Lab assay of single mutants.
Amino acid sequence: MDALKSAGRALIRSPSLAKQSWGGGGRHRKLPENWTDTRETLLEGMLFSLKYLGMTLVEQPKGEELSAAAIKRIVATAKASGKKLQKVTLKVSPRGIILTDNLTNQLIENVSIYRISYCTADKMHDKVFAYIAQSQHNQSLECHAFLCTKRKMAQAVTLTVAQAFKVAFEFWQVSKEEKEKRDKASQEGGDVLGARQDCTPPLKSLVATGNLLDLEETAKAPLSTVSANTTNMDEVPRPQALSGSSVVWELDDGLDEAFSRLAQSRTNPQVLDTGLTAQDMHYAQCLSPVDWDKPDSSGTEQDDLFSF
């Protein structure tokens, strides 16, 4: 819950932080000083300027060897085509990944977070970031790969997607708890209302004896509580940590079903599988986004697919 609360507080303090972009060759504004600060901008989305290598189908939802083989196929196909790589912007948030063309600003792909089953910074092609997700059109699994400016960037994108998945799962947990509370309150309110109706004398007997209905007592009954809980029953509950912020979080049926399955089948359902080692994760978390744009010590960066 700490990640969720800190993310909400950060967004309320400075929503404009989320509009910064990394990996864009110096076009961005001043960047936060450390990885923790940038992680807090996830709610509205972190932007990464990358190059799209392509996509291939895979048979399993996750796995280092599986993704490595898929990336190898994608890279080989991209090299064989001889075409310049498409420059894209990857927007990562707890909602998922939005992929747009840098030149036309046209939407290429919009992947809900619950469809993503794996992401990684490839070991062999260490400047490549990739994720595996279920197609929104059918049940097939797709591996999408992107060329980053350097290994640090690939690791940073991988960690960002993993963190977005974690925050999304926490949102789901909060929403589920809130819905259970509202359902319980609604049920209790309905029981109270039913009890009051059972003990209320029939209207005919009131008229016969000349008694008047006590409207004041009726007004004191917990009807307002019942209506408050039943009027918006169809509205999706939102985490309290975000009250007053500009973010509107809505959970669709697909996300609810997917996270429910994860909660039942996995020990740590909030953790998205990645190909990063503990050492890689520690190294990337210690980086400032400013470091992502620094040239690798191995030599001059080449803006070309064939540089790796």
Score class of each variant (00 low, 15 high):
D2E: 07
A3H: 10
A3Y: 10
A3E: 11
L4F: 11
K5L: 14
S6D: 10
A7W: 04
A7E: 14
G8E: 07
R9Y: 09
A10D: 15
L11M: 13
L11F: 15
I12P: 11
S14V: 07
K19I: 11
K19S: 09
G23R: 08
G25N: 09
G26E: 08
R27Q: 12
R29W: 13
L31G: 14
L31K: 04
N34W: 13
W35P: 11
T38V: 12
E40R: 13
E44R: 14
M46I: 15
L47V: 11
F48V: 03
S49H: 06
L50T: 06
Y52P: 08
L53R: 00
G54L: 00
M55L: 10
T56F: 01
V58N: 01
V58P: 00
E59M: 05
Q60E: 08
P61R: 08
K62L: 02
E64Y: 13
L66P: 03
L66W: 01
A69Q: 11
A69F: 09
K72I: 05
K72T: 13
V75S: 01
S81Q: 11
S81M: 11
K83N: 14
K83P: 04
K84N: 07
T89W: 10
L90I: 13
L90T: 01
K91N: 09
K91R: 10
K91S: 06
V92L: 12
I97Y: 01
I97H: 01
I98R: 12
I98F: 06
D101P: 01
D101S: 14
D101T: 03
N102P: 12
T104K: 13
N105M: 13
Q106F: 13
L107P: 13
E109T: 12
E109W: 06
V111T: 11
S112G: 06
I113G: 03
Y114L: 02
R115M: 04
I116W: 00
C119W: 02
T120K: 03
T120L: 03
K123Y: 14
M124N: 07
V128C: 00
V128E: 00
Y131D: 01
I132G: 12
I132Q: 01
A133L: 11
Q134T: 11
Q136H: 10
H137F: 06
N138I: 08
N138F: 14
S140L: 13
H144R: 15
H144P: 00
A145L: 00
L147T: 01
T149F: 06
K150R: 12
R151C: 01
K152T: 14
K152G: 03
T158W: 06
T160W: 13
T160A: 13
A164C: 13
A164R: 12
A164E: 15
F165L: 03
V167I: 13
V167S: 10
F169G: 03
F169R: 02
Q173A: 15
V174M: 05
V174H: 03
K176H: 10
E178K: 09
E180L: 15
K181C: 12
K181G: 13
R182L: 13
A185C: 15
S186F: 01
Q187N: 03
E188C: 03
G189R: 05
L193S: 05
L193G: 14
A195V: 05
A195K: 06
A195L: 03
D198E: 07
D198Y: 05
C199Q: 15
P201T: 13
L203N: 03
K204N: 07
K204E: 15
K204M: 05
S205C: 04
V207H: 02
V207K: 11
A208G: 12
A208M: 07
G210V: 15
D214M: 09
T218A: 11
A221G: 08
L223Y: 02
L223E: 10
L223F: 04
T225S: 07
M233A: 05
D234I: 04
D234G: 02
R238D: 06
Q240M: 14
S245E: 07
S245A: 11
S246Q: 08
V248W: 06
E250P: 03
L251M: 11
D252M: 05
D252N: 12
D253T: 13
G254T: 14
G254W: 03
D256P: 03
S260M: 09
R261V: 04
R261A: 09
L262C: 03
A263Y: 07
Q264C: 02
R266Y: 02
N268V: 02
T274Y: 05
G275C: 06
L276M: 14
T277R: 09
A278P: 02
H282F: 14
H282Y: 09
Y283T: 08
A284Q: 10
A284C: 15
Q285Y: 04
C286Y: 13
L287M: 11
P289G: 07
P289E: 08
V290L: 03
D291E: 11
D291V: 11
W292S: 14
K294V: 15
S298C: 03
S298W: 11
S298Q: 07
G299P: 01
G299E: 07
E301N: 14
D303I: 06
